[in-house]
């Protein structure tokens, strides 16, 4: 028998439509990844029952695990599908949309809530305009830079949100990734001037206190970002800020 790659894909025609499973088999070739296989299905959208169906809908862009678009559950694990190499996966390979975000269609979900959270926690360094002021930022030691670099690689892919027990559609929890960005911007020499603003943003409802310390986030992060380290440090900083607010007015 000809060697094939077998997919089981959880599909959904729209946000309110019922989900269903559909299977596809494509000819085997070495070095396929999940997205390259979906591209094959796009050209040959024929399911295992021989029916020509609508091609699967998904999001992808960079194909090298840096843009964060193609997050989905691959054999139950949230990850970047472009970096999920078929040769390393057990077949049939199941593909499902992330469960913590509303399904748009098939494997595409709406992750706007994550981007909104970045606004809510003010994840930026405030500037007095982008004109040249003829000065660099203050010096940053190589050690400090290495630590910040790790957090600056967050691509807002949503894998950490997917596995966080506290993050779901009935909770206001901001989630691990935006907390990592608070840590990043608070650690910048001038970004730190606005530390209190960001801490206040995560001290109320849906803030850092909602973290249940399940530590799932660090296990799935495709960029190995030590999110729990950041959350721990922010917890202490938030306590200090609370005391400061209480006594220093």
């Amino acid at each position: 028998m000809e060697k094939v790659i077998h997919f089981r894909i959880r599909r959904q025609d729209g946000p309110d439509a019922p989900p269903y499973w559909e299977e596809f088999k494509i000819p085997y070739a070495p070095q396929h990844n999940v997205i390259s296989a979906l591209l094959y299905i796009r050209e040959h959208p024929i399911n295992t029952r021989g029916q020509r169906v609508a091609p699967v809908v998904w999001e992808s862009n960079c194909m090298e695990e840096v843009c964060g678009a193609c997050s989905m559950l691959v054999n139950g694990v949230p990850r970047q599908a472009c970096a999920a190499l078929v040769d390393t996966l057990t077949q049939p390979i199941t593909l499902e949309p992330l469960t913590k975000f509303p399904v748009v269609r098939d494997l595409a979900v709406d992750r706007q809530r994550m981007f909104d959270a970045l606004g809510r926690v003010k994840a930026w360094v405030p500037l007095d305009g982008t004109q040249d002021i003829h000065q660099h930022a203050p010096r940053i030691s190589p050690v400090e830079q290495s630590l910040r670099y790790v957090f600056s690689r967050c691509m807002t892919c949503g894998c950490c949100m997917e596995v966080c027990p506290q993050y779901h559609d009935h909770s206001a929890f901001v989630g691990p990734a935006p907390l990592g960005q608070v840590f990043l911007h608070n650690s910048h020499p001038t970004g730190g001037f606005f530390k209190a603003d960001r801490l206040h943003a995560i001290m109320g409802v849906g803030g850092i206190a909602d973290c249940g310390n399940a530590q799932n986030c660090v296990k799935v992060c495709p960029k190995d970002i030590p999110l729990t380290t950041a959350i721990g440090a922010l917890g202490r900083a938030a306590t200090r800020q609370w005391l400061h607010d209480l006594f220093v007015r």
Binding site: D132, H136, S152
Partner: peptide
Amino acid sequence: RTYDRMGVTFSRTPEG
């Protein structure tokens, strides 16, 4: 310099 002020994590020399 502007990117540096925005907080880009540029790689550093030992002098920062």
